[in-house]
Amino acid sequence: MLHPSYSELMQEVNKDVHNGETPIVQSRYSIVLGTAKRARQLIAAGKTQMNGEEKKPLSIAVEELRTGGFKILSEESENYENYEDEPLA
């Protein structure tokens, strides 16, 4: 994955974190895990098109993360347990 970079994705995920708070994503592994989970959701729902083009589910998941289409939640989040149960967009 060349674009967006891991650092750009980490900045997007952590944009709502205030000074002194622990970032939601602190490693590339968290980005990989979050996008892989979302890609599996897309596969299960049969969604492989974006803007009328056939795309790989992982590419769609990365683009959704970059644009705020889904969020990676921290383990401390109240909604963490419901992460996989969220409805697909």
Score class of each variant (00 low, 15 high):
Ile24Lys: 09
Ser30Phe: 09
Glu84Ser: 14
Ile60Pro: 05
His18Glu: 15
Lys37Gly: 08
Gln11Ile: 03
Val25Trp: 01
Ala44Glu: 10
Glu12Leu: 01
Lys71Ser: 08
Leu2Asp: 14
Ile60Gly: 04
Ser59Gln: 13
Pro87Ile: 01
Leu73Ser: 07
Ser59Asp: 15
Gly69Leu: 00
Ala89Cys: 09
Ala36Trp: 03
Ala44His: 08
Pro57Thr: 01
Ala61Gln: 06
Glu63Ala: 11
Gln11Pro: 01
Thr22Ala: 14
Glu86Met: 07
Val25Ala: 13
Glu21Met: 10
Asn79Asp: 12
Pro87Ser: 05
Glu12Thr: 03
Tyr29Gln: 15
Leu65Lys: 02
Gln49Phe: 02
Pro23Thr: 02
Glu12Trp: 00
Ala39Glu: 07
Ile72Gly: 08
Ser30Tyr: 09
Val17Gly: 02
Gln26Arg: 15
Glu86Asp: 04
Ala39Ile: 01
Gln11Asn: 11
Gly68Asn: 01
Ala45His: 11
Met50Asn: 14
Ser30Glu: 15
Met50Arg: 14
Asn51Ser: 09
Gly34Asp: 05
Ser5Pro: 05
Leu88Val: 02
Arg66Gln: 10
Lys56Thr: 05
Ala61Trp: 03
Ile72Met: 04
Asp85Asn: 11
Met10Lys: 10
Arg28Met: 10
Glu63Gln: 09
Met1Asp: 11
Glu63Cys: 04
Ser5His: 06
Ala89Asp: 13
Gly34Pro: 06
Arg28Pro: 08
Ile31Leu: 12
Lys47Trp: 02
Lys55Arg: 12
His18Pro: 03
Glu78Trp: 07
Met50Cys: 15
Ala89Glu: 11
Met1Thr: 07
His18Trp: 05
Asn14Glu: 06
Leu58Lys: 11
Met10Trp: 01
Arg66Leu: 04
Lys55His: 11
Ser7Asn: 11
Glu53Tyr: 10
Ser27Lys: 06
His3Asp: 15
Lys56Val: 03
Glu76Lys: 15
Glu75Val: 13
Lys55Glu: 10
Glu21His: 08
Tyr80Lys: 14
Glu86Asn: 04
Thr67Lys: 12
Phe70Trp: 02
Leu42Asp: 07
Ala36Tyr: 06
Pro4Arg: 03
Asn19Cys: 06
Thr22His: 14
Phe70Asn: 04
Lys56Ala: 12
Thr48Phe: 09
Pro87His: 02
Lys56Gly: 08
Leu65Ala: 02
Lys71Cys: 09
Glu84Tyr: 07
Arg66Lys: 08
Leu2Glu: 15
Val62Glu: 05
Glu63His: 10
Arg38Trp: 08
Pro4Asp: 05
Pro23Cys: 05
Glu86Trp: 03
Leu9Glu: 05
Pro57Cys: 08
Asp16Lys: 11
Leu33Tyr: 14
Gly68Met: 00
Gln41Asn: 07
Ala36Gln: 09
Val25Phe: 03
Gly46Tyr: 00
Glu84Leu: 12
Ser5Ala: 11
Glu78Ile: 05
Pro87Cys: 00
Asn51Trp: 00
Arg40Lys: 15
Lys15Tyr: 00
Gly46Thr: 00
Lys15Ala: 06
His3Ile: 13
